[in-house]
Each structure stands twice: as C-alpha cells, then as structure tokens.
Design a protein around this nucleic acid. Structure first.
Length: 481
RNA sequence: GGCGCCAUAGCCAAGUGGUAAGGCAGAGGUCUGCAAAACCUCCACCGUCGGUCCGACUCCGACUGGCGCCUCCA
C-alpha cells in the first residue's frame, strides 16, 4: 500500500517518496493579489488543501508554504488606476483571499511569504545566478541565460526551436538587450514611479519567477518534495523557477511536480483574459461554500471541470442530503448512545486509503461517501429496537465523518449548514421565507383539523413555488427542491 | 506551426487486460391521509477503424471530434 502521485516532470504516476521519511515539504504557488479570487483559484487551493489534509491524515509531517505575489505589473497598474497605494491594495486582496478560502474550508499554509518581504533573499539568489554564470545584467535588468542550462524546457516538454517558431510570429523584440529571445527577467529595472528596491544593478524589482525560487528554498530548503499549482504555471513559471534554482544550487530542486486542471465555463477555459470568470464570493453568495467545494471534488484534480449552475446545484443537493443524514443520525444517537464498531471503521479507512493513494482520487472517494451515507440512512430506517441498529448508526456516522474530515466536507453543524443552504435556495429562487412559513403553518393547521382537501391545496401551492413538504412524527419540515 | 490532454449510459463522473464505482434524471416498489424525504430494485459493453493478445473499454497505430499550453493567468 503506497501513495502514488502523478509527477508532471516524468509524466507518470509514481510512488511518492519523500526526501526525509515521514516528512513532506510542499510549496504551492499562491495568488497575485490585484483582484478578487475566481473559482479557478478555488479549484487549485481546494485541490491542494485536500492533498495537504490527506498527507497529514496519512501520518506525514507536512510543511506547507503558499506565497503571495504582492509586487507585479498588474498590481502596479491597478494601484495607479484606483489611486490606492500598492500596499493597501495588496493587503486588501490578501484579506479577501483569506476570507474566500476560509469559506471554502481551505486553511492557511504554515508559511505564507510575501515577495516584498523577501527582497534580500531574492537579490542574493539573483547574484548567485550571475556569479555562477547563468545570468547577466543589461542596463539595470538582469536576465537568465537559458543557453547555460541544458535541462531547460524539460519540465514542460517543449523544444526551443518550436517555441521560437511559434513566438516569433506575434512577439516583436521589445527587449533588445536580451541575448536570447527566450531569456527571462530575474530582475527588472524600475521605471519612474514604480515601486523599487535597491540592488547591485540599481533600483528595481524581481522578475515574476525568482520569488518562488528564493522563498521556497528559504523555507523548505534547496530541494523539497512537492511543488504545485495550476497547469498554466508549468510554462513559463515553473520551468523558469526550475532553471533558476538549478542555476543557483546545481540541484534539481523539486522531486514531485503536481498541477491541477482548469475550471471551464461553457467548456472553455475560464480566465481573466477571456473575461468569463466567476469570483468566488459571487458564487458563494448564491450557493453554499461547501457546495462549491463538493462540486470541485467531483472531478479528479488533474482533469478539467466544467462549471455550471446546475452542476453546483446538484452538488448542493448532495451536501444537503449528507447533512440531513448526519443530523438524523446525531439526533438518534443522542437518544440511543452507542459505540462504533472499530473493525468496520478500520475496514472503511483502508478502502479510503486505497482510493486516495491513487493520485488523490477524490471523485472515487465521494463514491465511498455516497455508499456510507446510503447505508447510514438504511440503518436509521430499521424499525423497533434492533440490537445492532445503534451500533450500525454510530459506525456509519464515524466512517462518514472520518472521510469528510479529509475531504473537508461534513464537518459543520448540520443545522447551520442546512439553514445556509435553504437561504441560498430562497435567494436563487426569489422566494420569501415568511410567506412560505405562513403557508406551511396554515397547512399544518388544516391537517390537524383533518381538512385534507385544504391541506392538499396548500401543498400544491407551495409545490408550485418549489417548496417540498415533509410530514414527519415531529412535525412538518420544508425545503426548496 | 510545435507540444500535450481528453472522448465511458439522457446528464455528470471513477475505473480495470478477463465481461464497467458513484451521483443526477428516469421506471417500479416499501413507507405515507395524499405526498415528500429515506431506503430497495431496474437502467451502459466504454468515439470510429485497424493491430497485439487466449481475451481489450483498458496496450499500439490511424482517423474523427473536443480542449489546453506555446503571451499575464490556478
């Protein structure tokens, strides 16, 4: 039984072997903080959150680093447009990032380094790269000399000739001081009015890629176990990081490269440049955050996932079902306490490990969640005082909560989540809760009076609004279909 | 143009060289004043064409159809 992870570098699923037994050092590229996060970010950070949770649950001691890029062309432009200082802008969006992630159940990393707070490390690494003959200064800029690294493009699997052929058609040489068109900036000389830091090459700021090389090595060492991010970062970002780190240390700095697939909208890539993106906060205003999280886990992390309202709505119905099940089980156990059957819990754990060990297969893991919750309801339906019932409920509930803890699902207070989902559905359907509750109360009164004709009329009326009624021994509950 | 990914039931989505998880929808049941919820049962031979193999949906090749990267991007 061993964990297998798809490594972008080798393009194969391989046994995950850590540098140091039992310890994982992982780095995931964070966001550039100039705007609100979209659901593509949600996908990436939920995916790595599950990977992190699973590794820890499986017993690894994990150090997780996820950075913030807080100096960059887009940030500067946005800052100028808005007339807001850069630091104020970046602080705002870092706070927004944390809010969005917290809503999605994505925790903080152990270290969340900001580029602007690591200038000495960055400058030092650039200098080392120059000293070792892999970078050169040209009028205040510093470039990486790709011809000095034989392994360049090995991560992304491209060929230099092809890259040039493709690029030359639309990219005109704006940086004539570069020795090779593909050379990339390690350090950019400051233009007037731009944020700048002093350096041996004059005032300037870091190129995009160097920050991750510098900060990852600071917190995780020159070589570490896992480096992740979205597929779009493979080239050029990660390719260049790899080149820089190699140039600075002579070592292959990442053991396993992990990349998540995109979120598509209408089967096309969602991106800022296409303008078809959805901000996380806009989505979770309409759908419960856990619904979005569930939705993101229904597809394997490396495959593209297509975002649609109906798909998230379906996920929401599943989340609702799970919490209703949990609530019923908790209510039952409150009346009839029982201990879970440990061997069965352990057997479920093994099935889960088998599933998740296969490159973090959350989609398959959700099938285990479905099986468990179905069984839990099945046991809950058992009549009378079947001796095994309480144990069965306790066992299935434990299993469900165990799986949920790793996936980041099923961990909230059921009543709170269910109310939240109901409110989302009311909002989406433009329904008024007060009106519904009045009608429901009227119908309850009619039922008590055995006026079933009137009760059915009211049921029909509510049904037309999308309200589903559930008459039970403890009264009538309702929810939105 | 270069590189790469994907193609599984009405929809979404796992997966294995030896006759295909799960979810939604649908059909039939149990339950219910009627319902709903819940549970039970049923519901696919895996894009096309070749090849390898005792045997392929799973391996190889071709084709067709989607998509992505090569430019900031999770």
């Amino acid at each position: 039984m061993s964990l297998k992870v798809f490594n972008t570098f080798t393009r194969t699923k391989e046994p995950f072997e850590t540098l140091e037994p039992g310890k994982v050092r992982m780095y995931v590229c964070g966001v550039t903080v100039y705007d609100r996060c979209h659901i593509g970010h949600a996908r990436a950070y939920v995916a790595f959150d599950v990977i992190l949770r699973y590794l820890r649950w499986r017993g690894y001691d994990v150090t997780y680093v996820r950075n913030f890029t807080d100096v960059d062309d887009k940030i500067i432009r946005r800052s100028n447009e808005a007339g807001v200082p850069v630091t104020e802008l970046t602080d705002t969006f870092i706070a927004a990032f944390h809010e969005d992630m917290a809503a999605l159940g994505v925790g903080r990393a152990d270290v969340e380094p900001r580029v602007t707070e690591h200038m000495p490390e960055i400058i030092s690494m650039v200098q080392t790269i120059i000293d070792r003959g892999h970078g050169y200064e040209a009028s205040g800029d510093v470039y990486f000399d790709i011809s000095s690294f034989p392994g360049y493009l090995k991560l992304s699997g491209r060929k230099l000739d092809d890259m040039q052929a493709g690029a030359s058609e639309r990219v005109d040489p704006q940086e004539p001081q570069k020795r090779h068109p593909m050379d990339f900036a390690l350090w950019k000389a400051a233009k007037p009015g731009e944020p700048a830091w002093d350096s041996p090459w004059g005032p300037g700021r870091p190129g995009w890629h160097i920050e991750c090389s510098a900060m990852s090595s600071k917190y995780l060492g020159e070589v570490f176990d896992m480096h992740g991010g979205g597929m779009d970062l493979i080239f050029p970002h990660h390719e260049n990081e790899r080149a820089q780190s190699w140039a600075a240390t002579g070592k292959e700095f990442v053991r396993t490269w992990v990349h998540n697939g995109f979120v598509n909208v209408d089967s096309e890539k969602m991106s800022k440049s296409l303008g078809n993106f959805f901000a996380i906060r806009d989505v979770i205003a309409r759908f419960h955050p856990e619904s979005l999280r569930y939705f993101l886990l229904t597809t394997h992390y490396r495959s593209p996932i297509n975002f649609t309202d109906s798909a998230v709505g379906e996920a929401e119905n599943r989340v609702e079902y799970l919490y209703e099940t949990i609530q019923t089980a908790c209510d039952y156990l409150a009346r009839t306490p029982a201990q879970a059957d440990e061997p069965e819990v352990e057997a479920a754990r093994e099935r889960f490990v088998l599933t998740m060990d296969d490159d973090f297969n959350t989609a398959a893991a959700l099938a285990l969640v479905a099986d468990t919750s179905r069984r839990l309801n099945d046991v809950l339906m058992m009549k009378g005082k079947a001796p095994d019932k309480a144990v069965g409920v306790a066992t299935a509930l434990r299993i469900l909560q165990n799986l949920g803890a790793v996936l980041g699902l099923c961990g909230q207070e059921p009543a709170v989540i269910l109310a939240g989902i109901r409110d989302c559905k009311l909002l989406r359907n433009g329904l008024d809760r007060g009106l519904i509750e009045t009608l429901v109360a009227d119908r309850v009164a009619a039922r008590v009076a055995k006026d079933f004709v009137r009760a059915d009329v009211l049921r029909g009326e509510l049904s037309g609004m999308g309200v589903v009624l559930m008459d039970g021994p403890e009264g009538t509950r309702w929810k939105i279909a």
